[in-house]
């Protein structure tokens, strides 16, 4: 049962990921990106990582795919159809993709033993991961979390500052 579901999700992930790259219509690509990310959430669900499942749907499908669509729609109908999906940077892109693939494959092969150790077995299926994740974030990794939060906040404030119009004196002015 788990195997069947895994291959089902994996097939949709691969097909939709290819669709994101190959389709000419940008809106269709953005939508397929949402589908791909939702199916990754399905994989998390299969691994009984319930918090990751919900966070993936909440952040990647509900926010990131949404913002992609938002930006694409803001660009209007002219941006939807480019002549061809490949341009002269294709070889470089292929090289980058292959490098990333090799890197990931190496990590996966090396961590196979480690994965077996930390993977939740069938006995743990159904138990929530959210308590242990919360304890980890506010326990051993608290400092790291705070730093990440601070960096994100800085980026947020920076983005707001950049998008505000300023007059010649350099003072930030409200629209």
């Amino acid at each position: 049962m788990m195997q069947v579901l895994f291959y089902f999700f994996a097939a949709i992930i691969l097909v939709s990921a290819l669709g994101v790259v190959l389709l000419k219509n940008v809106v269709h690509s953005a939508l397929l990106l949402g589908l791909c990310l939702a199916m990754v959430a399905g994989l998390y669900g299969l691994l009984s990582a319930d918090f990751l499942f919900a966070a993936q749907v909440l952040i990647y499908v509900g926010a990131i795919a949404l913002l992609f669509l938002f930006v694409v729609l803001l660009c209007g109908r002219r941006a939807e159809f480019s002549e061809k999906p490949l341009n002269q940077a294709a070889p470089a892109g292929l090289l980058a993709a292959l490098t990333a693939l090799a890197l990931l494959a190496g990590v996966i092969v090396q961590s196979k033993a480690a994965l077996r150790l930390i993977m939740p077995g069938p006995s743990q299926a159904g138990a929530s991961t959210i308590v242990s994740i919360g304890n980890a974030i506010l326990g051993p990794f608290a400092v790291g979390m705070e730093i990440v939060g601070f960096i994100l906040l800085t980026a947020l404030v920076g983005a707001v500052l950049l998008t505000k119009r300023s007059d010649k004196t350099g003072d930030v002015k409200e629209e």
């Binding site: 939508l31 949402g34 939702a38 319930d50 918090f51 499942f53 919900a54 966070a55 749907v57 909440l58 499908v61 509900g62 926010a63 795919a65 949404l66 669509l69 929530s128 959210i130």
Partner: peptide, 17 residues
């Protein structure tokens, strides 16, 4: 569901798509 609240907020967002 142990993650009920998060689950509802997550799937509400999909409707907006």
């Amino acid at each position: 569901l142990d993650i009920g609240v998060l689950y509802i907020f997550a799937f509400t967002g999909v409707s907006v798509l």
